[in-house]
């Protein structure tokens, strides 16, 4: 059925007036099409994404390269302030990342080892449980997504996340383009015109590069890390017993952050 703009607006307008919303207009004019388009997120069916990080291969320099690539990919501004800082991927030492998995005599090299940290894309995510608007939700493939257009900025998810993975836009992130004191440290912001910038007052975090997965690419950090050192970061599908992530988890000893909290992180660290 061919529907012109006028017709569509008419039906959408009437159904909105009746309080049933725009979705109904779609349903009347082309039944099933909206459902289909919202369900068909590429690569989500039957998958359970996870990441394995080989801490032997990831040195500080390499992690920094990954951070830079990630933040460029997602237009994360450099705000030059610890309080306002927005970060998707960053580095932390073993000592602070795994506070319950060490003792006084743990090898010096391990305790001070720098590891990359980001959102754990937990299987049982407290952030999604507490969000009052479903602005953050879990996809079928396990990725914890964030809709910056719906977020009201209550920051309940930040209180709920036991991993400190979430950042808030305390001010307008786009001011780095005009603010004289920030322009210099953000010369080419926004670096990736393909990815949206955010506004002030919303929460954001790592999205496992959902936009790249949709194109059949690996997350940016994984690409950068493996480019320098083979299999430094492995990304894959835990639901597939033959996958690389499953194989390596089967072969080597791995740990996760704060497993005792029951959030079931999907980031595994090879120690």
């Amino acid at each position: 059925m061919a529907v012109d703009r006028r017709q569509f607006l008419k039906v959408a307008g009437i159904s909105t007036l009746l309080g049933i919303g725009g979705k109904t207009a779609f349903e009347i004019l082309s039944p099933g099409r909206l459902e289909a388009s919202s369900q068909k997120i590429p690569l989500t069916t039957g998958k359970r994404w996870a990441m394995v990080i080989d801490t032997h291969k990831m040195d500080e320099g390499l992690i920094e390269k990954c951070i830079e690539a990630c933040h460029r990919e997602h237009n994360v501004p450099n705000l030059d302030s610890q309080k306002e800082e927005v970060k998707w991927l960053w580095k932390e030492d073993y000592h602070h990342t795994f506070p319950n998995q060490q003792h006084r005599f743990t090898m010096h090299d391990i305790i001070h080892k720098i590891v990359p940290v980001m959102c754990n894309h937990c299987s049982n995510p407290p952030c999604c449980r507490v969000c009052p608007t479903q602005s953050t939700w879990q996809r079928d493939d396990g990725i914890i997504m964030m809709d910056p257009h719906r977020c009201i900025g209550c920051r309940f998810c930040m209180a709920a996340c036991p991993f400190g993975a979430r950042s808030f836009n305390w001010g307008d992130p786009r001011r780095v383009m005009t603010d004289d004191s920030l322009k210099e440290s953000n010369p080419d912001f926004p670096q990736n015109p393909e990815y949206p910038t955010r506004c002030k007052g919303v929460v954001e975090k790592c999205n496992f590069c959902a936009e790249r997965l949709a194109k059949g690419l690996e997350p940016k950090c994984v690409e950068v890390a493996n480019d320098k050192k083979e299999a430094a970061m492995i990304f894959g599908d835990l639901a597939d017993p033959e996958s690389e992530v499953r194989t390596i988890l089967n072969e080597r000893y791995s740990i996760r952050r704060k497993p005792e909290l029951g959030t079931e992180p999907n980031l595994y660290f090879l120690i």
Binding site: V130, T133, R150, I152, G153, C154, F156, G201
Partner: peptide
């Protein structure tokens, strides 16, 4: 006043979420 996006406050009612204690 604590909300980052106060103009969107009605989202709490438009997308009612019973699993959120804030709701």
């Amino acid at each position: 006043v604590d909300l980052g996006n106060p103009v969107r406050i009605m989202n709490v009612i438009m997308y009612p979420t019973p699993n959120s204690i804030l709701f």
